[in-house]
């Protein structure tokens, strides 16, 4: 009888812990999704598919892997000039989002890296901070 209650208690404890971490995790996930919908989906679409040869896809984009080191700066400062994504040329220009914090950029990037069928490694806030440090001169313009 006693053992049973103990197991039950442990079980409840683990369940509570799980829900808590899930909450915490999905909060961040939610912020990433919310920011994506607010700032990115207009162009890259809700499913990350992009728009023909005008707007590059984020879903299954080789660019996310090949240019991982530049992604935080692309979001903060935008991008112009010709780029190649999955073998196709794009040259339309993306505006920057200078008001986004490094935490917000991290959440957006992690949303992109783990959705739309993508399964790329996540970003830590330190990694994003390091990337942004490299393009900080663009902020002073």
């Amino acid at each position: 009888m006693l053992i049973k209650t103990k197991i039950l208690l442990y079980g409840a404890g683990i369940a509570a812990l799980l829900t808590l971490t899930r909450c915490f995790y999905s909060d961040k996930q939610n912020e990433g999704e919310r920011l994506y919908t607010q700032y990115c989906a207009n162009c890259h679409m809700d499913d990350g598919s992009g728009l023909r040869n005008l707007i590059p896809p984020l879903a299954g984009a080789d660019y996310l892997e090949n240019h991982r080191d530049e992604l935080a700066c692309i979001i903060q400062h935008g991008q112009t000039g010709n780029i190649v994504v999955n073998g196709k040329n794009y040259n339309q220009g993306m505006p920057g989002f200078e008001h986004l914090s490094k935490g917000q950029i991290t959440n957006i990037l992690n949303y992109v890296q783990t959705n739309f069928g993508n399964n790329n490694p996540r970003f830590s806030i330190q990694e994003v901070e390091k990337q942004l440090f490299k393009c900080r001169h663009l902020l002073e313009q």
Partner: peptide, 16 residues
């Protein structure tokens, strides 16, 4: 307009 940073690409994907 082609440089529209907001709703235009969505409109164009619906027009497609």
């Amino acid at each position: 307009f082609t440089t529209c940073p907001t709703i235009c690409p969505k409109m164009k994907s619906q027009m497609l």
